[in-house]
């Protein structure tokens, strides 16, 4: 079986190479592609490696707060980067729970998102952080809200031949956040993952509540309609339980080795509630964020 590794030096060149051979596949860390190969899906004849493109792995402060993460940054680079740890500790907390350290040294954030698997951890925290995906294709550059990026099982909004170049995370309001991963053993894929972000007003009442769940539907779920119930309410077990019920009604789990449909829905409810309460406790203890009092819609 013939096989070529192409190593473009610019994004434009990578896009161009793909335009010439639509069957070629982009290669970042390669961890997902090699697992697929192992599972019997042969590697395509041409792989276009993105690793050698200078600057695609940079992590920088965003304008007016927030940050930008190059698509080729490894999960490990992101989890350890001081800007990430300081500005979006929720993301670092989630990434530390992905796979094992060897996979995180290789796997990239862009590859994780582009892969579109339904049970990945990073999408949940990135959804509550309101991340935007920047992608470049033959038609030019565009930004896609992460909330509109995941379409279904292994299906994303990316057009064939589009390269994810960057992830932009907007400034977060002062808030508490957490990512709770429920797995059958450490290092395993999630049975359920829940990311929550809670912003409180000066009286300790909810200003804004965000929640995303992973591994409980064909694509990660950004739960809708929480603020209607929560805004202005004091945090309580009862409120968290009601919000968790809203979340459980929005998941559509497919049973897998890590839980049946019923089990995953119930665990989604449990972990949604725990994550909301944990995030609220952090918001009370000492919120982090960019100092903006404005909620980011």
């Amino acid at each position: 079986m013939g096989f070529d590794l192409l190593e473009p030096r610019t994004v434009a060149e990578a896009v161009e190479l793909h335009a010439r051979d639509g069957n070629a596949v982009f290669l970042a860390g390669g961890t997902a592609l090699l697992i697929l190969q192992r599972q019997g899906l042969p590697l395509p004849r041409r792989l276009i490696s993105l690793r050698g493109i200078p600057g695609l792995d940079e992590i920088t402060a965003g304008p007016g707060g927030g940050l930008r993460i190059g698509a080729l940054a490894t999960l490990r680079q992101v989890e350890r980067h001081p800007l990430v740890v300081r500005r979006v500790p929720l993301l670092a907390e989630a990434l530390r729970q992905v796979a094992n350290v060897r996979v995180r040294h290789t796997a990239t954030l862009g590859g994780n998102l582009a892969h579109g698997d339904y049970r990945l951890d990073p999408p949940a925290p990135l959804l509550v952080l309101g991340a935007q995906v920047r992608a470049v294709g033959i038609g030019g550059e565009r930004e896609i809200a992460l909330a509109a990026f995941f379409r279904g099982l292994f299906e994303t909004a990316l057009q064939p031949g589009e390269v994810v170049t960057e992830l932009a995370i907007p400034p977060t309001p002062p808030s508490g956040g957490t990512y709770l991963k429920y797995a059958l053993s450490s290092n395993d894929w999630p049975c359920v993952g829940a990311a929550a972000l809670v912003a409180l007003d000066d009286h300790g009442r909810c200003r804004e509540v965000r929640l995303a769940l992973t591994a409980v539907a064909a694509a990660p779920v950004l739960v809708r309609g929480l603020d209607e119930l929560a805004r202005g309410e004091p945090v309580s077990d009862r409120l968290a339980a009601r919000l968790a019920d809203i979340a459980a009604a929005q998941v559509e789990p497919v049973g897998d080795q890590r839980g049946s449909e019923w089990y995953k829905r119930e665990m989604a409810r449990v972990f949604a509630r725990r994550a909301l309460l944990a995030a609220a406790r952090r918001a009370e203890a000492g919120p982090v964020g960019d100092g903006t009092k404005e909620p980011v819609a």
Binding site: L5, L27, G30, T31, L34, I35, R38, L47, S49, R51, A99, N100, V101, R102, V103, H105, T106, N187
Partner: peptide, 27 residues
């Protein structure tokens, strides 16, 4: 395991531990 989960194939690549089972030699 051959799928990145057990660590018996660990090598240092530019000083960083990675899975030799999930790395294409050409890369």
């Amino acid at each position: 395991c051959g799928v990145g989960a057990c660590g018996t194939c660990t090598v240092l690549l530019d000083g960083v531990p990675v899975n030799a089972c999930l790395t294409l030699a050409v890369t």
